[in-house]
Design a protein around this nucleic acid. Structure first.
Length: 423
RNA sequence: GGAAGGAUGGCAGAGUGGUCGAUUGCGUCGGUCUUGAAAACCGAAGACUGUCACAGGUCCGGGGGUUCGAAUCCCUCUCCUUCCGCCA
C-alpha cells in the first residue's frame, strides 16, 4: 500500500499519477489524509492522558512502598476519571483506523513516470521484438490439434478428474513440461537466483501482503475449512518469506526463483481465448523475484527484462516486449513489461511473462525493510517476473516448430527433453 | 486426533504484580592497543508512533480481561517442541 506521508506531501501529484491508470476515485486521497490527521489528533490526546495515568501509577507504587495507604487511595480515585476518557478515545481511534485501513487498501500503486498513457491493451507500447516468425507448411495446425495428434495432453480426462481447465499432461507432453521447468530453474540459478519450492497454499496475511487480497479475492481458490488460498503465483509465498523482516543493506539484492503450480479461477472468458492451453485454471510457472535497494529497482527491472529476454531467445521463439499502459497495469505495479510470444498457427500473440516493479507498495504492506548506511530503516523495493509461464510456451513451441515430420525441440532443451523432436 | 511443555531484543537465555523496554552471555558496530589482525579492555546498538527538535505513547507470539499498575495473574486463539495414534 501507499504511504500516507507520501500522499500528504504530494497530494496533487499522487492524484495525477492515479489518473494515469484511470483510477476513478481520486477523492480517496484527500479522505485518507484527513482520516490520518484525525488519527494523529486522537493519538496525541490519548498519549497525554495515558501519560498521566502512568505517572500516577508510579506515584501510587511509591506511596504504598512508603506505607502511605490513604494518599495512595486518593490518587487511585483520580485515575478513574482518566480511565473513562481513555476508553472513549480508544473506541474513536479504532473506528478511525478501521476506516483509514479500508480506504488505503483501495488505492492501487502509483504508476511510474515511465508508464505510457492509455486505457486498453491496444495502448501498450512495443519496446522490442525479436526472433523470426516461421513460415509454416501448408498442413500446420494449432497446438490443440498437435496435442491430440501426439497424445501430449488429455483435456477431457483432466475435466473428468477435476473440471475444465485442469490439463492432464501425459507421456512426452509431461516430459516436455518437466524439461521446461528444469531448464528454466537452471537458467535462473545460473544467473544468481536462489531456488525455492514454496508452500502452494498461503494464509490470508500472505495473500494480503502481495496484494491479492482484498482486491482480487475472486481470482484465488479458497479452502474455507482452513482459511487458506491456493496460490495464483509463486510470487505470493516467495515474496512473503521476508514479511516483517528488517534486512541488512548488505543482504540486498535478494534474488529468488521458484517453481510452482498456479491456480486461477479466472471466470468469464470463452472461445478461442481459452482453447487448448491458452488459458487454464491450473498451470506451471517458474518465477523470479528480487528485493532490492530503492535506488536500484528500475535498473534491476531492466536487468530482469533482459534476463527473461535471453531465456525466450534461447527457446528460439518469436517474441515482443510491451510496456504496459496505465489502464492495463496490475493493481500493485508501478511499471510492468509483458513478454508475448507469437503463436504462429493461431496467429496471435500470447503473454508468457510479466515483469514488474512494485517499488515499495508490497514492502509497505509486508513491513519488509532494511537498515541503510545511516542506520535508518527504509522499505525495500520488490520486483518479480515470470521466467517463464509454461502452458503458452508449450503451445507456441509446438505450433512454431511443427513440420511434416513432427515437432522439433529447440537446441537448448534437447538435453533436458532427451530427444531432438516429437514425432 | 489425544497428552504434556513452551513462545521474551540478531541468537541463546534470566525475569512470577510497581524505578523492567527488560539481568546476562554470544554475535554486531565504534574506540584504545597493534605495522595489520586476533586477544584484551572501554563504549554503543531494538521496533513502531510522534515532534522542527525534545517530551510523550505503544510493543516481551496474536486478541481480550483483572488491576491505580502486567513480561509476570485469568480467558482465548495461533504456532513450536516432546510423547501417543494415524500416515506418504
Amino acid at each position: 500500500m501507499l504511504q500516507v506521508n507520501v500522499l500528504r506531501q504530494n497530494t496533487a501529484w499522487a492524484k495525477e499519477r492515479l489518473a494515469v491508470r484511470n483510477f476513478k476515485q481520486p477523492e480517496l486521497v484527500d479522505e485518507i489524509v484527513a482520516l490520518d490527521d484525525e488519527r494523529k489528533k486522537l493519538q496525541t490526546e490519548f498519549d497525554t492522558t495515558q501519560a498521566k495515568v502512568n505517572s500516577a501509577s508510579k506515584d501510587i507504587g511509591k506511596l504504598i512502598g512508603q506505607g502511605k495507604k490513604d494518599e495512595a487511595e486518593e490518587l487511585k480515585a483520580n485515575v478513574a476519571s482518566f480511565k473513562s476518557q481513555i476508553t472513549g478515545l480508544t473506541e474513536k481511534m479504532a473506528a478511525v483506523e478501521k476506516q483509514l485501513q479500508e480506504k488505503i487498501v483501495m488505492l492501487p500503486n502509483l504508476p511510474s513516470e515511465k508508464v505510457p498513457p492509455g486505457k486498453t491493451p491496444e495502448d501498450n507500447v512495443v519496446v522490442r521484438s525479436g526472433g523470426d516468425i516461421p513460415a509454416l507448411y501448408a498442413g500446420a495446425v494449432p497446438h490443440w490439434d498437435l496435442i491430440k495428434k501426439h497424445n501430449l495432453v488429455d483435456f477431457e480426462t483432466g475435466a473428468k478428474i477435476t473440471g475444465s481447465g485442469f490439463p492432464l499432461y501425459k507421456g512426452k507432453g509431461a516430459k516436455l513440461q518437466r524439461a521446461l521447468i528444469q531448464y528454466f530453474l537452471d537458467f535462473n540459478t545460473a544467473a544468481g537466483y536462489t531456488e525455492f519450492i514454496p508452500p502452494f497454499m498461503v494464509n490470508e496475511q500472505s495473500a494480503y501482503s502481495t496484494g491479492q487480497l482484498p482486491d482480487k479475492e475472486g481470482q484465488m481458490y479458497h479452502v474455507t475449512e482452513d482459511n487458506l488460498y491456493l496460490i495464483p503465483t509463486a510470487e505470493v509465498p516467495v515474496t512473503n518469506i521476508y514479511r516483517d523482516e528488517i534486512l541488512k543493506e548488505a543482504d540486498l539484492p535478494l534474488m529468488l526463483t521458484a517453481y510452482s503450480p498456479c491456480f486461477r479461477r479466472e471466470a468469464g472468458s470463452f472461445g478461442k481465448e481459452v482453447r487448448g492451453l491458452n488459458r487454464v485454471h491450473q498451470f506451471e510457472k517458474v518465477e523470479i523475484i528480487q528485493l532490492v535497494h530503492p535506488e536500484k529497482s528500475y535498473d534491476v527491472l531492466e536487468e530482469m527484462v533482459a534476463h527473461v529476454e535471453k531465456l525466450v531467445q534461447s527457446l528460439e521463439l518469436p517474441y515482443r516486449i510491451l510496456k504496459l499502459c496505465g489502464g492495463d497495469m496490475g493493481f500493485t505495479s508501478a511499471l510492468t513489461y509483458d513478454f508475448e510470444v507469437y503463436s504462429t498457427a493461431q496467429q496471435r500473440w500470447l503473454e508468457v511473462s510479466s515483469v514488474s516493479n512494485f517499488e515499495n507498495y508490497q514492502a509497505n504492506r509486508m513491513k519488509c525493510r532494511f537498515k541503510d548506511a545511516n542506520g535508518k530503516t527504509q522499505l525495500v523495493h520488490t520486483l518479480n517476473g515470470s521466467s517463464l509461464a509454461l502452458p503458452r510456451i508449450f503451445a507456441s513451441l509446438l505450433e512454431n516448430n511443427q513440420t511434416e515430420q513432427g515437432i522439433a525441440i529447440p537446441v537448448a532443451l534437447r538435453s533436458y527433453f532427451g530427444a531432438d523432436s516429437i514425432s
